[in-house]
Write a protein that binds this DNA or RNA. Sequence first.
DNA 1: AACAAGACCTGCATGC
DNA 2: TGCATGCAGGTCTTGT
Length: 273
Amino acid sequence: MPELPEVEVLRRSLEPLCCGRRIDRAEVLEPRLREPVAPDFAQVLTGRSTEALERRAKYLLLHLSDRMTLMVHLGMSGRLLWTAQGEETRKHDHWYLKLDDGSQLTYRDIRRFGLARLVPTPGLARDDKLRHLGIEPLSAEFDGAWLRGRADGRRRRMKEFLMDQTVVVGVGNIYASEALHCAGVHPRRKVSRTAPATWDRVAEAVRVTLERAIDAGGSTLNDFRNGLGDRGYFQVEHAVYDRSGEPCRRCGASIRRAVQGGRSTFYCPGCQH
DNA sequence: AACAAGACCTGCATGC
DNA sequence: TGCATGCAGGTCTTGT
């Protein structure tokens, strides 16, 4: 579910609600996430205050007092939900924080592919999850020349290349398909010897696609919600994702589904080359 | 070294 | 109604 736009939408919705508060209480209900939630999770969090909520790639970084950061990844089905008052916990609620205004931040994740890890803030950039991450696609340094430099001499295909988090972060299965359609580039195209002008189109398409998705509140296929439980609406603007058999809005050809790297890829055979 | 395939987990849609 | 199969937004490890 959550690629860069969804995580950014979540960050923006939560930031004003849960920063600048004291954590009165924390509780872990189910520690078995992708990696076990640390035994001292609740104890470390309790009493600290929340200072800022940052996003790096698909990770949320809740910076706390006393140089501690809570790093959260939503996996495929994770949600962070803010409620003005404490709520009964439900099935698949794995941990929650109670803040000093009576509000509550709950982590819910049906598939438990998510992650919640406490990391000392000074060493954050060297954390093994963050250390190898590539460039932020919405940063000023991200452009066609940068992508081309990373692709140099490789035989990889375009879609796998864009989804490689050590190259550029935040692009997952939906937005790789969408951005490549926007750029008119076939997902199976090899990255080697791709013309500079094509790289410029790809980089611009990634940027524009992600920004539009953020503006639309992200894509809600099944379960994505922002911090307030609201759906996103970018899925209705999808050009190719989950539209196999439907006509391309640009050229009218029938959208195709293929399997690439074990994942569904959607593309238009008429206008992607 | 690069790449595909499998693993992790639950729920849902589909077909018999 | 039940049961079996395949599929889902992401990493991470294993095997070729």
